[in-house]
Amino acid sequence: MSALLETCNLTRQFGGLRAIGDLSLSVNRREILGVIGPNGAGKTTFFNLLTGIYPPSSGDILFKGNSIVGLLPSQIARLGVARTFQNIRLFRRLSVLENTRIAYDSQLPYSPVDALLRTPRARVRERESIDASMELLELFELGSMANECAGDLSYGSQRRLEIVRALALKPTLLLLDEPAAGMNPYEAMQLTDFLRWVHGKFSLTIVLIEHHMQMVMDLCDRIEVLEFGVRIAGGKPDEVKANPRVVEAYLGTEGELP
């Protein structure tokens, strides 16, 4: 299996702090990779590097074999890398449909002139964008709320809308930053099933940052473990669970993971 994403000696320094150090790992096509580690392990920094929010201090990131270091976040997104956030970041005052359409429309050039003159091209595109976005919303049972303000949705619906919005980019790689944050074990279990379904339905490769261990163990094909920005272990869920180094990082010595 060929790697969809590869990082080579990826390092990110913030002043004296090494948030990510010499990280080399790869994500295979169609797999679900879990990235776990204690708070402050550099997991979100890792996502920020992958999406171009800030450049690495050194090292390289290859997506589909090409380096994406130095590209703008918007360019990386259009190559097919989508993400969700630890704290929900919807456009609260825009409607549910608009939140979705923004991601969908970003594939097209913005021409205010086209839009104003109502050229046939602009009209066809608009129809396309509305239809495709509505279809996606219906699929996620958000269709009936399409015209509501995103900020007025329930917490669960907002989480779902964030995923819909990411999918509207038609990504090949989906980065999920703690999607189960604030959920109880039952909700996390439902989310696990939901993500498994999304993974299959949209033929995605997923990288998942998550603290709900049960969810990570159930969902992921492979797990990478970070501590202080360095990879300390990696492998199949059972291997990782049994790795004394991981258990120590999480629970101190003498602990056991679920």
């Binding site: 703008l72 918007s74 970041r89 825009l94 923004i102 970003s106």
Partner: peptide, 11 residues
Amino acid sequence: SDRATVSLLGV
């Protein structure tokens, strides 16, 4: 409403 997020959506 959120410039950083909008870039991550390809805009």
